[in-house]
Design a protein around this nucleic acid. Sequence first.
DNA 1: GTCTATATTATGATAGAC
DNA 2: GTCTATCATAATATAGAC
Lengths: 222, 222
Amino acid sequence: MAQTDTPPRSDRRARRRQETIEEILDIAEDVMTEEGVNGLSLAEVARRLGVQPPSIYKYFPSLMAIYDSLFLRGQLEHLDVMRQAMAGAECGLGALTAGLEASGRWALANRAIAQLMFWRPVPSFAPSAEAFAPSVEMVALQRAAMAEAVCAGQLGPEADSDEAICLVSTLLVGVLSQSMANEPDLEWGQGRFTPTFPKLMKLLVAAYPRPASGSKSGSDVR
Amino acid sequence: MAQTDTPPRSDRRARRRQETIEEILDIAEDVMTEEGVNGLSLAEVARRLGVQPPSIYKYFPSLMAIYDSLFLRGQLEHLDVMRQAMAGAECGLGALTAGLEASGRWALANRAIAQLMFWRPVPSFAPSAEAFAPSVEMVALQRAAMAEAVCAGQLGPEADSDEAICLVSTLLVGVLSQSMANEPDLEWGQGRFTPTFPKLMKLLVAAYPRPASGSKSGSDVR
DNA sequence: GTCTATATTATGATAGAC
DNA sequence: GTCTATCATAATATAGAC
């Protein structure tokens, strides 16, 4: 158990190293934002860090490893943003809406990472299982919120399904794709596309009407 | 007016030249499909054509010119596919649905080109005005179909609007984005995402209910 | 953990012979 | 319209000195 209790020297070194790693990832994100997700290069990162390319290999074994770390960091950040947004809203439909809106806002504020995560524009890169893991948790969050919405009578029982999850993610991804491709400088809430998201959510509610107690009203669009 | 009437020699040469141009574009499409839209390279095209890289410059002045020709060819093909699908369907909502479905089917069958056209994954490439022109006509086609649908009483009057055009394109792009990113080997109609498109179209109809003559029914989701 | 030097490979593009 | 030769530039990655 030697060295377990606050060894000052190696602790500082480890912290400094971690800072450098984060700095490399920050720079990599900048490069991707400017040159496109595919435009990321070790050499350019080194240049901006004020270091020679071989030095990068002391922190990452390869370019793909940088992509993977960016992917993981993005997933964790995105999951956190969504979780907090959902926690700050009412249960069920409110949480779902808040979570999706926060997700969209984050994606537009972190386009490069979002594209890496959700559009897969680098054919030679496949995320590791570790990097992908948070995504599973995110789906679970959404699924839980939809189940709550069903319990609370805000949505019909069919909303607690894989199909409904697909549908809701498709709506968000559609808005984000259109915004990123056609309005590359606008953030969430601006432009022609992202403001339509609340309307799309209302459509979703219309798609899964709660069974009316007694009569058979509600537009059946399924 | 000399040489206007079937000059056999230069005519054959021009035809042969045009064939080579088309072959280069076909190969470029293959390369993008395999290596990603950004992975297109003059050298690889030359290699597959069985020719040295400088020879390509006899047909295209630069790599970006190849992108531009691919963009134009894609727009024309896509416009044609959509027009024919709409012509083969009933007016109004039927034509709109048929056109969008044909658009989606074409996009998945020509992913690389579709991504180049609608996702803009090559930051250093911007289409020329000529290459972009058919896109304007395509929007006009959609707009006309929606106007017809309004006239025919299939949709409410608000459907004849820019907002509605945005909405409908967002739905399709969402489905396509999800399918391309998560089910890269499936075509239209397969998988979890593209089969939901008809349901999304029904949602659209629900979003723009025709004003009921007399009562105030119809779910108002706007 | 940083550097220099180097290996290897690739790119887009041009000049000029044939 | 094809080629060879070449330019200028860039990339990932490794070896080894300090």
